[in-house]
Design a protein around this nucleic acid. Structure first.
Length: 274
DNA sequence: GGCTGGCCCTGTACGC
DNA sequence: TGCGTACAGGGCCAGC
C-alpha cells in the first residue's frame, strides 16, 4: 500500500511552501534528463510571486517583469516529495529537479518512481497539460455542487469511480479519497449511473473525506511527507481505503477489494450494494 | 470526442 | 540467502 498525494496532501504542501517561497528568486536550477522534469530549468531567473493549487497540481506563479507571466506547474505523481534544504545532493538517486533560491537554500523535488511531472507555461495556458486543462471544479469551493456533479457524471457511462479519478467531474480526488467518499455516500464504485439525490450525497461525501484529510495533515501510508518532513495522520481516520478484509464500521460486513479499471478498490458489499 | 488498454517506473512483498 | 515475479497506481497516449 502506498499513498498518493491527493488534494489534502498537495494543499498541506502548498501551505508550507507559500510563506517560504513567495517573494524569492530562482537563481539556478537542475533537473533529471527526462523530458518530464527538464522544464524545471525554464524557471531560472524568475521571481516567485505565489504558490497556489488546482486539484493535485501545485502552481508556482513566476514573474520576470515580462508579459505574459508564467507558471511553474508541478504534479507530484505518486511518490513526489518537495522539500527545502540548505543545499542539494546532486548524487541522490531519486532527485528529479532542484531550484536554488536567492539566499542560498534549495527547493528539491525527489520522486522515486518518476510519475511526477514539471511544466513551465504562460500563466493560465494549460492546453499542453491535458488533465489540468480539463480539470473539474475545486471540491471545497462553492462552485462544486451536487447538481454540477450529477451533470458531469451523467455525461459518461463509465464507472463512477473511474470518472472521479479522471479529474473531470471534480478536481483532486485520487484513489484513497474516491474510496472514502463512495463509502460515505453508500454508492457502489462500479455503478454507471448516479441519480441526482445520490450525486448530492456524493458531493457532500467528497467534501467530508477531503476535509478530514486536510484537518489531519494528509494521509501517510509510506512515502508521503510534507515539506517539513512531517507525516500526515489521516490514515488513522480512514473508513474504507486499505481496509479490505476488515468489518465495515457501518454494518459489520467484511469490506471487499477488487480492481476497477486497473485501480484497487475497496467497498462494502452490503451498504454499497449496486 | 469518448473509451480502452498499455505503458511508464521502482520499491516492496512473496514464492521458490 | 538470493533470485524472479507480481503488484501498487496517476496520467499520458495510441488505437479503436
Amino acid at each position: 500500500m502506498r499513498p498518493v498525494p491527493e488534494l489534502p496532501e498537495v494543499e498541506t504542501i502548498r501551505a508550507q511552501l507559500e510563506p517560504r517561497l513567495a517573494g524569492r528568486s530562482i537563481t539556478e536550477a537542475g533537473s533529471h534528463p527526462s523530458a518530464k522534469f527538464a522544464p524545471a530549468m525554464d524557471a531560472i531567473g524568475h521571481d516567485i510571486s505565489s504558490v497556489s493549487r488546482r486539484g493535485k497540481y501545485l502552481i508556482v506563479a513566476l514573474d520576470d517583469g515580462r508579459d505574459p507571466r508564467c507558471e511553474l506547474v508541478i504534479h507530484l505523481g505518486m511518490t513526489g516529495r518537495l522539500s527545502i534544504a540548505a543545499d542539494v545532493d546532486a548524487r541522490h538517486p531519486h532527485l528529479r529537479a532542484w531550484w536554488r533560491l536567492d539566499g542560498g537554500d534549495v527547493l528539491t523535488f525527489h520522486d522515486i518512481r518518476r510519475f511526477g511531472r514539471i511544466h513551465v507555461v504562460d500563466a493560465g495556458r494549460y492546453e499542453t497539460i491535458a488533465t489540468l486543462h480539463r480539470l473539474g471544479p475545486e471540491p471545497l469551493n462553492d462552485g462544486f455542487t451536487g447538481d454540477g456533479l450529477w451533470r458531469a457524471l451523467s455525461a459518461s457511462r463509465r464507472c463512477v469511480k473511474t470518472q472521479l479519478l479522471s479529474q473531470r467531474p471534480v478536481a483532486g480526488v485520487g484513489n484513497i479519497y474516491a474510496d472514502e467518499a463512495l463509502w460515505l455516500a453508500q454508492i457502489n464504485p462500479a455503478v454507471r449511473y448516479v441519480s441526482k439525490p445520490r450525486a448530492a450525497r456524493l458531493a457532500e461525501a467528497i467534501r467530508t473525506a477531503l476535509t478530514s484529510g486536510l484537518r489531519h495533515g494528509g494521509t501517510t501510508l509510506r512515502d508521503y511527507a510534507a515539506v517539513d518532513g512531517s507525516s500526515g495522520r489521516n490514515q488513522h481516520h480512514l473508513h474504507c481505503y486499505g481496509r479490505a478484509g476488515e468489518p465495515c464500521e457501518r454494518c459489520g460486513t467484511e469490506l471487499r477489494r477488487r480492481i476497477i479499471d486497473a485501480r484497487g478498490t475497496t467497498w462494502c458489499p452490503t451498504c454499497q450494494r449496486r
